[in-house]
Simulated assay, not measured.
Amino acid sequence: MPTVEVTDLKDGDFLLDVREDDEWQAGHAEGALHIPISEFVARYGELTEAAPQDGRVNVICRSGGRSAQVTMYLVQQGIDAVNIDGGMKHWEAAGRPVVTDAGQAGVVI
């Protein structure tokens, strides 16, 4: 399973958040693309339109389980994808910003 640590990510790296809507609304990484795992197959085209053609897709969820499933699917599709170890829990613990859609400080639930 291709994996990356939160501390290895740079500002501007492409993030795909696969958490459910209530988790996203509570707080997320600014600029991430949100496609809940429960809707992922139906909305796959949104990822292919938004993802950089020659860049990596960094997949994140709350703790790494759901994002691991999506990462494996993407790798099978020939996409350069990695799972973010520890997910949003590690993101928040590393001091990375967590925001709401309104731009306010968010929380990871």
Score class of each variant (00 low, 15 high):
Glu39Thr: 14
Met88Trp: 03
Val4Asn: 03
Arg19His: 04
Phe40Trp: 13
Leu47Ala: 11
Val99Phe: 02
Gly78Phe: 12
Ala102Met: 07
Met88Gly: 04
Met1Trp: 07
Glu5Pro: 00
Thr48Leu: 15
Pro2Phe: 02
Gly55Pro: 00
Lys89Ser: 14
Ala51Asn: 04
Asp85Leu: 08
Thr48Ser: 13
Asp54His: 07
Asp13Val: 00
Gly95Ser: 13
Gly27Trp: 10
Glu39Gly: 04
Val99Trp: 01
Tyr73Gln: 12
Ala93Val: 05
Met88Asn: 10
Leu15Phe: 06
Gly95Asp: 14
Gly86Tyr: 11
Thr71Trp: 02
Asn83Gln: 08
Ala26Tyr: 05
Gln77Ser: 11
Ala68Phe: 00
Arg43Gln: 13
Asp22Glu: 15
Asn83Leu: 06
Gly65Ser: 10
Gly65Tyr: 07
Trp91Arg: 03
His34Asn: 14
Glu23Phe: 12
Glu49Asp: 14
Leu74Gly: 08
Ala81Cys: 07
Gln53Cys: 05
Gly78Gln: 13
Glu49Tyr: 05
Asp17Pro: 01
Lys89Ile: 15
Trp91Met: 05
Leu33Pro: 02
Val108His: 09
Glu30Met: 05
Tyr73Arg: 11
Gly55Ala: 11
Ala68Arg: 03
Ile37Phe: 15
Leu47Ile: 13
Val99Asn: 04
Arg96Cys: 11
Gln77His: 12
Asp54Cys: 03
Thr100Leu: 05
Thr100Glu: 07
Gly106Arg: 08
Ala51Phe: 06
Leu16Gly: 07
Glu39Val: 07
Glu49Thr: 13
Gly45Gln: 15
Gln76Pro: 04
Glu20Trp: 06
Gly31Met: 04
Val41Tyr: 12
Thr71Glu: 13
Val41Thr: 15
Asp85Phe: 07
Arg19Trp: 04
Ala68Gln: 11
Asp13Leu: 01
Leu74Thr: 13
Val82Trp: 04
Asp54Leu: 05
Val107Thr: 15
Phe40Ser: 05
Val59Arg: 01
Ala51Tyr: 05
Val98His: 00
Ala105Arg: 09
Gly106Val: 09
His34Ser: 12
Asp101Glu: 14
Asp54Ala: 08
Val99Gln: 03
Lys10Gly: 13
Thr71Met: 12
Asp101Gly: 07
Asp8Gln: 11
Ile109Asp: 15
Val75Ser: 12
Arg96Asp: 14
Ile79Gln: 15
Ala42Tyr: 09
Gln77Ile: 10
Ser38Trp: 06
Gly64Ala: 06
Lys10Gln: 15
Val98Phe: 02
Val4Trp: 00
Glu23Ile: 01
Gln53Glu: 13
Gln77Cys: 12
Met1Thr: 10
Pro52Trp: 00
Ala51Thr: 00
Leu15Met: 14
Glu49Val: 11
Asp22His: 08
Val41Gly: 09
Arg96Ile: 06
Ser63Cys: 05
Gly87Ser: 12
Ala93Pro: 05
Ile60Ser: 04
Ala93Glu: 10
Asp80His: 08
Thr71Val: 09
Ile60Val: 09
Glu92Asp: 15
Gly78Cys: 11
Gly86Lys: 08
His90Ser: 15
